[in-house]
Design a protein around this nucleic acid. Structure first.
Length: 530
RNA sequence: GCCCCCGUAGCUCAGUGGAUAGAGCACAGGCCUCCGAAGCCUGGGGCGCUAGUUCGAUUCUAGCCGGGGGCACCA
């Protein structure tokens, strides 16, 4: 149930009949100034150029065709051609009932063209604990996955890792070095993980690197899984790069690209011609020494994902991987797939006190440390509260100090207050009321009415921070309403007017439900008490 | 040199063409015998610069200036 879409429909109809065909989008906006009505649209201004007529005149004619009555109490034209709508009490009352019917599915989408989406996220190799950077990847990727699913698509979450090869060797060697009381080798892992693992693993210092790796990697993997579980991230598929090699998928993918004419040889190496599809340069698949590149595995992995029936591949990557975007899309194209079906949302870097971190730099703040410091709810909220296009910095001491004033508690508290009311006063029993809602209540209903559009855009733009912004605003509206009831007894939810009380309980319920739904989309709990 | 992201209030950030640009924190002050003060209210302060497109630009385009991240026969 998208209340605003329903409201916009007659306006769009009037506009279309005036334009005689091409229907412009009618967006209903909430004017900052209440004198401009409940909702406003600029459709007349947008139509003016193509109709070659004065926008104000167009607005007048649209207004005339809409008329008033029913949901629309009045239509006014203002300024250069704004159409301002005022809604009737009936609309507000019915809105609450309709939202209530949808319950925790309010705002959810249904799609004729349902996509089968694979979201690949985190994908950190098991050579150390998950960093705060990986936590951002996971928090962002998981929120995107939840949003896309809520929007009505099928979603699978996948974690791609490499548990063989040079990095794993260096990791095993680093652990062994610690066991021997030595420093990690050049290009190894200087952080605390190898030190801890060396103490835990019962192997002699002269055991082989392979033995050390085989012992250390599974332990590391279990820790990564435990951290993701703490973050409330459910990975559906763990995919090992090794399987691509073992199954012959790499050779097959290269064969497919070769058959399509995109593979050539030069300087003793085998190349994929990605440049024609927008990549900066062609990429090597098989090196002169006969070994395959990481990119060859990427190529095979893309083919593997499509072969599993996914038609939209999301790669959640950090800004340090932005160079991959072009080559991944080009690789898909070389395999005969639509480049746009590969989508790479890039999130900006996370730094610690202004410094870039890295497992091989040894200056890591781990995801667990972040969770230990501020809790899971605050961590997940914090990690997606800002746009993924925004770089963020973590000062762990500051984060702890500011924990109690983390905005997540503002939202959770709003939910707890509403839940308390419903606990004490019971639920609404009616589905229609004679009560004319007060302006404070209309404000809440209008906010609720925005939710389907907010969640739809957040899903399309892969922008979960919009959900956070919305739920914060909704919580603020609720806090104010709640407070108004303390100042003005006639605005209390619990009062003597049975009809008003029942309506307000219904409103309380849909506010609580929508807060819960929104928080769930970003992996944050909505406690009934705190 | 080329590519991506960012530049909005003292700080951290919302706001992807519309009528008076918002929030949190910080700062100053007010509100609990009253549905939870983890709350509410009031106040000061802001779109990096220059052109362009448009009836209208914080929003789109170009250039410039700042900050971050990339440009492997590494993984």
């Amino acid at each position: 149930m998208d209340l605003l879409a329903n409201l916009a429909a007659p306006v769009a109809g009037a506009a279309a009949s005036l334009a005689g065909g091409g229907t412009p989008d009618v967006l209903l906006e909430r004017p900052a100034d209440p004198a401009h009505g409940d909702y406003a649209t600029t459709v007349a201004l947008r139509m003016a150029p193509s109709l070659k007529r004065a926008p104000r005149q167009i607005a007048e004619e649209i207004a005339q065709r809409i008329g008033s009555g029913g949901d629309i109490a009045s239509v006014e034209i203002a300024g250069p051609g704004f159409i301002n709508l005022r809604l009737s009490p009936t609309w507000y009352r019915n809105a609450v009932t309709r939202i209530r019917v949808d319950g925790d599915r309010y705002g959810a989408g249904r799609h004729d063209a349902r996509r089968n989406v694979l979201v690949e996220m985190v994908s950190a190799n098991p050579t150390g604990s998950l960093t705060a950077g990986s936590a951002r990847n996971g928090a962002y990727g998981d929120a995107v996955a939840r949003l896309v699913a809520f929007a009505g698509h099928d979603v699978v979450r996948e974690y791609y890792f490499n548990d063989a090869g040079v990095q794993i060797d260096r990791f095993g060697e680093s652990v062994r070095a610690r066991k021997r009381g030595e420093e990690p080798p050049e290009g190894g892992y200087p952080g605390p993980d190898p030190i801890a693992l060396a103490a835990e693993i019962d192997l002699p210092g002269d055991a082989s690197i392979a033995e050390w790796s085989a012992a250390a990697v599974p332990i590391m993997f279990e820790r990564i899984k435990a951290t993701l579980a703490r973050l409330r991230i459910d990975v559906d598929i763990w995919f090992s790069e090794r399987d691509l090699h073992a199954s012959g998928a790499i050779a097959r993918a290269i064969g497919t690209a070769r058959a399509a004419g995109h593979v050539y040889e030069r300087d003793g190496a085998v190349w994929l011609a990605t440049t024609p599809f927008g990549d900066d340069k062609d990429r090597v698949l098989i090196k002169a020494d006969g070994s395959t590149t990481y990119f060859a595995a990427d190529l095979a992995y893309i083919e593997h994902k499509f072969a599993r029936g996914h038609d939209r591949l999301l790669y959640i990557l950090g800004a340090d991987h932005h160079g991959y975007v072009g080559r991944l899309k080009a690789a898909a194209a070389c395999l005969g797939h639509e480049p746009a079906s590969v989508e790479v949302p890039i999130y900006q870097m996370i730094t610690v006190s202004g410094e870039r971190m890295g497992k091989r730099r040894g200056n890591v703040v781990t995801a667990d440390e972040l969770i230990d410091a501020i809790g899971v709810d605050a961590a997940r909220y914090f990690l997606v509260a800002r746009s993924h296009d925004q770089a963020m910095d973590i000062d762990l001491d500051l984060a702890v100090a500011q924990n109690s004033e983390n905005p997540v508690f503002y939202v959770q508290y709003a939910h707890a207050r509403a839940a308390k009311l419903l606990r004490d006063a019971g639920r609404s029993t009616a589905t229609s009321w004679a009560y004319d809602p007060r302006p404070q209540e209309n404000t809440l209903v209008k906010r609720l009415a925005e939710w389907p559009a907010v969640v739809r855009e957040a899903a399309e733009l892969r922008a979960p921070h919009r959900v956070v912004g919305y739920v914060h605003a909704l919580a603020g509206d609720w806090h104010r309403y709640h407070h108004d009831g303390k100042v003005d007894p006639t605005l209390r939810v619990v009062n003597d007017d049975a009809d008003a009380r029942d309506f307000r309980l219904a409103l309380t319920e849909v506010v609580a439900t929508t807060i819960r739904t929104a928080l769930a989309l970003v992996g944050v709990a909505a406690p009934d008490a705190m």
